[in-house]
Write a protein that binds this DNA or RNA. Structure first.
Lengths: 242, 242
DNA sequence: CGTCAGTTTGACCTAGTTCAAGGCCAGTGG
DNA sequence: CCACTGGCCTTGAACTAGGTCAAACTGACG
């Protein structure tokens, strides 16, 4: 988030990738009572079993949605990048069925459910836009099922990197083929269902074939086309409009 | 679907698990222009890349949502049981990012998008109810990510069986611990990301420990509690209300 | 300069895959 | 009424992708 934009600008920009807003709709969004707060990395915003009364817009940083298993494993089921609304679903699903936490230091804009309901009630097209966001979440989850269910290690990691790179690009947070990338190898392991050791070997292979460079939290897709090919990445499921 | 109920009754029953309908809302649903059609098994209703102009209610039979990979594999990402609305998301996501097909002989009620939009436009609470259905779809997909990403073969199969049993029970389609179960071992393999051979061995193990009986398309959860324990199944993510 | 989080590497192991061959049984046609 | 077919299930044997365990390395930071 750069200093010269208000939180509502980020929200508006995201909504306007989907539809032309009327003057009234813009005003209504700008009037949303937002509480902007910073969170340190590895903080839970909502936990399994919670009944949140607010939802959040991710303004800066990365978040993850994850589940904890009885055997102690942690499975990450989604990552959120700036501009995302990682928990709008709480508007209609009272109880959290997973955890939502920060992956890096984050800035969030919190909105009470009541304010969202009122906004949607008065502006049905905005409601549809939020609905659409949750549908894309679902589409991403389906693709993750494919990833963990059907691709080998190289394909899984490559696909995940292609996805997050494409999503970051869509919100203007890449520079050329590079972007900031806060996922550690252990986190990559939890997102792909592989072991950290094997993630390391897979990344080494990718570096060896000059597919990527990755260090110090910075990722470069040196050979983007090869990455797309290695994972048969097809961005249709992200439903991006240009 | 028994003969004494109209298609709209099934839809109404599903909606009424979520909210009390007003007289007007009931009437509006009953007035929906439905086209009821039978389909043979293994028919695609919508394919990757399609832009459907209608969506469907599944009245009888089972459907699957699946993706085809470049290597020829098929990954099933969701199964739909009677009462489900497997493609409401097409209302807001124009292009299909996966395939939707029948797993068994099916009876569907087809509705034009325009009719759905008009219904939702006049009855926002019904819109919310449909939105909620799509959110539960997303929750199920997230759990499938956990399944394919974090559980071993026995856990995966047990979890899938617990899920579909619970969902069938919720719509009154089980008798005691038994239900009709049209998934072949190959289909189970495609839904869990395992090989058909290993599915077979896993089922043999389950039978050996008296967890289930399964033959001729009929499944009995002989030891339901053990199945739940084996897969750490927790129905929270299905967001069933009772 | 020590510590700590994250990464790298090696050696060994195993859950699940692959390939291949039969077996079972319901439906069909002679 | 019986033989044949085809879809599905079962089993064995050999193989491998990825897991596990354990140790060492790197670099940022106090």
């Amino acid at each position: 988030m750069t200093l010269d934009e208000r939180p509502s600008d980020i929200i508006l920009r995201r909504l306007e990738t989907n539809l032309e807003l009327t003057r009234e709709e813009r005003k209504a969004v700008e009037a949303l009572p937002l509480q902007v707060r910073a969170f340190r990395k590895d903080q839970d915003i909502a936990r399994f079993g919670d009944r949140p009364s607010q939802c959040c817009f991710l303004l800066d940083g990365w978040m993850i949605r994850y589940k904890l298993l009885t055997n102690g494993r942690r499975q990450i089921v989604q990552v959120a990048v700036p501009g995302d609304l990682p928990d709008v679903q709480t508007l209609h699903l009272e109880v959290m069925d997973h955890n939502l936490g920060t992956l890096s230091d984050c800035i969030l804009a919190l909105v009470q459910h009541s304010a969202m309901r009122s906004l949607i009630g008065h502006h049905p097209r905005l409601g549809s836009a939020f609905w659409r966001e949750t549908l894309i979440d679902g589409a991403i989850s389906r693709e993750w099922v494919v990833n963990t269910g059907s691709r080998d290690a190289l394909g899984r990691v490559a696909h995940l990197l292609c996805e997050v790179f494409t999503r970051m690009e869509a919100v203007g947070l890449t520079t050329g083929k590079s972007m900031s990338f806060p996922m550690t190898q252990e986190v990559l392991a939890q997102a792909t269902g592989l072991s950290p050791v094997h993630i390391n070997r897979t990344l080494m292979t990718m570096r060896g074939s000059n597919l990527i460079t990755l260090h110090h939290g910075s990722l470069t897709m040196t050979d983007y086309d090869a990455m797309v090919a290695a994972s048969s990445f097809d961005r249709t499921y992200l439903h991006l409009r240009h």
